[in-house]
């Protein structure tokens, strides 16, 4: 029997040719194919169409139907989103542990948005530096921060500096700042590898790039379509995990070949470093949303 064709307006937080958008395209392509193109996606653009931090509002208000947004881009609307990066599990493990379901309830209650899942989960953050450090100690270093890891930089004794992203390259080149934090993929895309000398290897947090759907749009879908979305995201989260691990590895090799030094810590220091990363973030969240923070901490316990 004929089902009416649905076209979903889709927006992403980065331009079309970024790692994240490409992984998202795998997802949308698969849905289009497996639904025999009864469901199609109409990409209305990236940051050039709607400023990234305003995309969540556009999704809430139904200006767009689907959005690809990391947690940090809706922390203002939902403080608990700040915890997504702290999860010790991979996306499919989160489904088994009920973590996914918890966030789904939260996001649907507070934002009126359907949280479908994450892509490129398991990708860690690193610090990229111009100066060498021997221990997990940022004293004397000026680090360009985003809210994601600002408390962590302070906890390590570093000087947190805020800079417009467009000025980071020149600021690094001229030494206005000594480093920044970024996931293990995408640094070379942005040209920043040209102006750094070291990468601090122990990875902290993980990327939390979510696929979000306007709740009204989601409710309009029939049960077959809903099932398709879930089966495809379950495939994509594994696929994009493997892909991003591969890319992270390639990028690591590329950086090494360019002569960028890898900074590793001893076992004890590494433990201290990672513990501090988590503690700094939890401290902040616990102030904002104490009861939910506690809930999520429980869920994260291995």
């Amino acid at each position: 029997n004929e089902t009416a064709a649905i076209s979903l307006k889709t927006i992403t937080f980065t331009t079309k040719n970024s790692v994240w958008s490409k992984n998202f395209e795998i997802f949308t392509d698969m849905i289009e194919k497996e639904s025999d193109r009864t469901i199609t996606f109409q990409f209305v653009g990236g940051p050039e169409s709607i400023p990234p931090f305003e995309q969540i509002e556009a999704l809430k208000n139904g200006v767009v139907d689907v959005a690809l947004l990391p947690g940090a881009y809706f922390v203002p609307q939902l403080p608990e989103a700040d915890t997504m990066k702290l999860s010790p599990y991979l996306p499919w493990e989160e489904r088994d542990k009920g973590i996914y379901q918890f966030y789904q309830g939260l996001i649907s209650d507070k934002l009126g948005i359907y949280y479908l899942g994450k892509i490129t989960g398991g990708t860690r953050y690193h610090f990229y530096l111009k100066k060498h450090i021997k221990k997990p100690d940022f004293k004397g270093l000026k680090i360009r921060v985003t809210p994601i890891y600002e408390p962590f930089v302070r906890a390590l004794g570093g000087t947190a500096v805020t800079l417009a992203p467009g000025e980071l390259y020149i600021a690094l080149e001229r030494g206005v700042v000594d480093g920044f934090g970024w996931p293990s993929i995408g640094v070379t895309d942005l040209g920043w590898h040209e102006v750094i000398k070291y990468v601090v290897y122990p990875g902290f947090y993980q990327t939390d790039v979510c696929i979000l759907i306007n709740l009204k749009t989601w409710n309009r879908l029939d049960s077959n379509a809903k099932r398709l979305f879930h089966s495809v995201i379950e495939k994509t989260e594994r696929h994009s995990y493997e892909l991003s691990q591969q890319m992270a590895n390639d990028e690591k090799v590329f950086l090494k070949n360019r002569g960028i030094g890898v900074i590793n810590f001893s076992g004890e220091e590494e433990e201290y470093y990672l513990k501090n990363a988590d503690k700094a973030a939890w401290d902040r969240i616990s102030v904002k949303s104490p009861s939910n923070a506690l809930r999520i901490k429980q869920l994260f316990k291995k």
Binding site: G140, K142, T159, A160, V161, T162, L163, A164
Partner: peptide, 14 residues
Amino acid sequence: MRQILNKPLMWTVE
């Protein structure tokens, strides 16, 4: 503040 005292104000850009 940043260059001399190593204590940037943090809020100026914002």
